[in-house]
Design a protein around this nucleic acid. Structure first.
Lengths: 172, 172, 172, 172
DNA sequence: TGTTAATCGAGACGGTACGTCCCGTCTTCTC
DNA sequence: GAGAAGACGGGACGTACCGTCTCGATTAACA
């Protein structure tokens, strides 16, 4: 329903009718239609979260970030993800479900990979790993949610390169 | 009303009552309550957008990004901005108002300052200026909208430093 | 609907659906489904209330009371009237509608006829006219609502006779 | 519960909660909440039904009818009795419980007393005893249920007098 | 004394109606 | 002739009961 008609269509009333359930039951299990949609979407789109570790951090980041962008752009996740994050700004239950079930676990995985790289000397000792995550995934979300400009997988290489090696001229 | 009770409370019905206007008139001027709220918020929070140019790009970015974070965190913009971006994911009118009136002009200003820096040789010739913007402001939005973790102005220096000089170990 | 399925079926939900109206509108006009049903029934069953005055009080009372019993028993009024008085015991709005629109005006008409008879010397000067009404119509309602025993028009003559001439042995 | 909050509050759901019973058990014993309330009320308000026989029919009727009116008006029976008769119009189980447990036995007692009086010659041989009952108790119920006008014990003497001796002028 | 059967609490569930709020369209009356 | 006032159909909200149902835990009779 979420994929077919968008979040707007996910109401307890309609879900109850289509699913042959009663509103009472839905209210017992989910605090709001958004929370239901969020849970349903996570269950539906569960995927392997393994972060590759080939030893080459740059390549691994490009791989993982590219998979993320492809998921959004090629596998239809763009609209539901946008809408779920959208209502999460208003509905604390959705926000909680989203953070707990998706965003924070993903960040932790990335952080782990980055920590290994840091221990291996590939990253500065004083690098802020959370900031790296923010600058890679956050940049994609920025375009998706805030700027609403199109982007595709080709962005990932530049994102990773600049995050690792900086945009400043090496002369300085 | 947006600041007092949140976006949820901004309905045409209530605005009409409180403002002594009729719903008909509101419909004539705005396509949706969200669009009205967006316009009202922009009008209310209009501020100088000038991007400083002291010649020191790193300092200027920290200044501007710091002002952005303070605006969010210390001037009460966090909640209305989150909620407006939130409904923008669902309401194309709000999305359009937000992009046109706020996000894209801001990005253009940042881009101009970065272009000057690039022409002055402070940034690599092949640096993607949009990506820099994404990695600075997008990182903040990432924490604000997606991760929903707290952050404050202290993050700006790290953001700018890593964006300019990279997180990778210089040994490599 | 009232006649077809009984009071239980008269819900705002169903009326709205069948009548192509919205619940909001129904709530604006009637305080409860019962009140709606009451009003609808009065409008539907409006009839001439004229109380005959042939000069013969006994005959006139039998006529009028007989018409009442026939209305209940032969014209299908029994069930809706019972149910309306039934919910009137719980729903003050129905009680009010019933009293104002039906019961009290009817009693007033009967009282007027009796007053004329009293002035003509056909009734004792100290007779309580309201009590006469209670003893004629109330007796019917007693069987209808309280005892729930069947009765028919044949009761009216006995009712009127005993109300006028008493049940006590004339020897006393 | 019936006395405290009225019939509306007597639901299986609430009774189960307050009584520490399960709905299943309630369903096993009573067909409807109304039937439960009816049975509970009869059990609670059981009283001696003896009809006095002092030899003076008029006095005995006034005594008994006065006790009935006092019960309604001074002992708080008015509201529960009204509401029980009210739902009896809709709920056949309540109607049955009411008739069997209360109304018909009471009528039978009155009938017996009247029959004795008739045998003693105090009442006409052709008097309809049921009609007398209807005209005494029914008149009270009429005011209680149908007219919804206040009344008190003072009515009983007039009711009995007119039922026994008639309202018609003795000149006729 | 241990096993089994019946009983009852707790409460989940599909339904239906409640009463409220808001949407978006419309008509009407007024300034 | 624009705008306020607000009626209206529509639809979702969140709540309360209904009547049915499945669970365990308790209890009682019986082995």
């Amino acid at each position: 329903m979420l994929l077919r008609d968008g979040m707007q269509a996910v109401t307890f009333e309609r879900v109850a009718t289509e699913a042959g359930a009663s509103k009472t039951t839905l209210y017992k299990w989910w605090p709001s239609p958004g929370a239901l949609a969020a849970e349903a979407y996570f269950a539906h789109s569960q995927r392997v979260l393994d972060f590759p570790d080939t030893g080459d951090l740059r390549a691994d980041l490009i791989t993982q970030l590219g998979a993320f962008v492809r998921w959004l752009k090629d596998e239809g996740a763009e609209q539901p993800v946008s809408e779920l994050i959208g209502i999460a700004q208003t509905d604390p239950d959705v926000a909680h479900a989203w953070s707990e079930s998706y965003a924070l676990p993903r960040r932790e995985l990335a952080r782990q990979r980055l920590r290994i790289a840091q221990q291996q000397g590939q990253l500065r000792q004083d690098a802020d790993l959370d900031v790296i995550v923010d600058q890679l995934w956050g940049a994609c979300y920025h375009r998706l949610l805030v700027l609403k400009v199109p982007f595709d997988e080709s962005i990932t290489e530049r994102l990773v390169t600049q995050a690792l090696y900086g945009a400043a001229s090496p002369d300085l």
